[in-house]
Design a protein around this nucleic acid. Structure first.
Lengths: 256, 256
DNA sequence: TAGTGGTCTAGACCACGGA
DNA sequence: CCGTGGTCTAGACCACTAT
């Protein structure tokens, strides 16, 4: 077992890491962990891959494997062809609080922003029709947005709204207003029940492009259906989050 | 666009693969997708990596990247050094139904089994103490189990129970009984509120070993705290699921 | 245009699994 | 024991980003 000191020596050598008896693989992984543990960067960019290769005396493939590992752990992330970055702390997302995005983000001392990618009418496909309890092919509103936290694009959302519930809603500024606020104040519709479906996957091509994520980056999918005070499904949305951006929370009475 | 049938043919040479203008990356990814789409295997093992290399005329590294992608998508999974397998359909896990594991699994026509890895007493660390509202260092029961669906190890759970709530619970057969059933019938404690914390990460070394997962495989972490009818936290658990094994669902009234 | 990450080739040795 | 996946080396070309 080579107990050599595999230290990144930028200027002053970060000494005192025995690195002996590294049991099994990892090797470089711990190494990179240490890289982050030591300077504890804020949310900055890592050195370029070629630079890290030299620093750690390793290969592109090996380095890349390690970076992908750390990405899976949620410790770093990448922007497509732009580089690797240290992940900021996860936003706590209380599924049942039903806070507007902006409020949720700001209550955690972060900065929120929203971008509307598209807003229009489409015919509901089978999935959407089933969720909303309407006939396939019915025209619904579709709104696609990207949301940022502290400038970082973390969420791609696609909403489908029953047109008969929210006539003319596209005329509002959907980048500035919370949809649930519009529901309540402009349409007298209150969300009185929500139903979720969560799974961990990767971004599809569209979401990846919108978030500037590499295709194949891990993503958290959240599908939500909102029901109004009459138990009618009024809208649904498909959210794809950078998986390292959130930690979901939830507190409720079980239905037993 | 090459609409040719990209079929893996074992003996016959892998001819007729134009490979022209494959738009962007993927290349092999689509190829492997097709591999699965065509025969639509049940939950069987994929050919060995070296065999696939030949079949698809590619390299180990490239092949491996592709497999890891499919793993991240939740379409295949691996057992440590044993090979790659097609992922079975996800189990729907209703967070608020609070069904015992066995019931949940069997209600979906699957077969459940449980293995107790360890059961004993430990001193509560800071995290556990905070969750349970007890003093750090208090002695609690700890139960570690592995759960299977259709024989596949999918879940590593570690429970921490307040000893004053469940005296002598370790004497029951914890592999056969549901904990919540024991709570109710043996200790007259009913779970009347649950609080969750969900995040997507990778397995730690212990969980990976217990599930025979490769270290670094993606995992869904679910932390739960159970409160009894008096609002007292009586136990908590840390679940680590193979991320492709579940789809979480949830339906409730928001707390607005 | 220079440098970056994304993708890929063609090998190698090791530790562990299963027969 | 052989075959498997796990890890690693040492390069290469391309598409895109940033300047």
């Amino acid at each position: 077992m080579p107990s050599s000191s595999l230290e990144p020596q930028s200027d002053a050598a970060s000494s005192a890491t025995p690195d002996t008896d590294v049991p099994v693989a990892g090797l470089k992984a711990r190494l990179l962990n240490h890289l982050e543990a030591a300077p504890l960067r804020a949310s900055q960019r890592l050195p370029s891959e070629r630079e890290m290769i030299e620093r750690f005396a390793t290969t592109r493939v090996t380095l890349r494997d390690t970076l992908l590992q750390l990405e899976a752990e949620g410790r770093i992330y990448r922007e497509n062809r732009r580089g690797w970055f240290v992940s900021p702390p996860r936003l706590r997302y209380d599924l049942l609080a039903c806070l507007p995005f902006r409020d949720m983000v700001e209550s955690q001392q972060r900065v929120a922003s929203t971008e509307v990618l598209a807003a229009g009418e489409v015919a509901a496909n089978a999935v959407i029709a089933r969720r909303l309890g309407i006939a396939e092919g019915s025209v619904v509103y579709r709104i696609t947005r990207v949301r940022r936290i502290d400038g970082r694009r973390v969420l791609h959302v696609c909403h489908h709204l029953r047109r008969d519930c929210f006539p003319g809603i596209l005329d509002f500024d959907l980048g500035a207003h919370s949809l649930t606020d519009l529901y309540r104040h402009e349409y007298a519709i209150r969300v009185s029940r929500v139903s979720f479906e969560l799974a961990s996957t990767v971004f599809d091509a569209e979401a990846a492009a919108a978030l500037n994520a590499a295709q194949g980056s891990p993503a958290q999918r959240i599908t939500r259906i909102n029901f109004d005070q009459n138990g009618r499904a009024v809208d649904c949305d498909d959210e794809h989050w950078r998986h390292d951006a959130i930690e979901l929370t939830l507190s409720a009475a079980p239905q037993s």
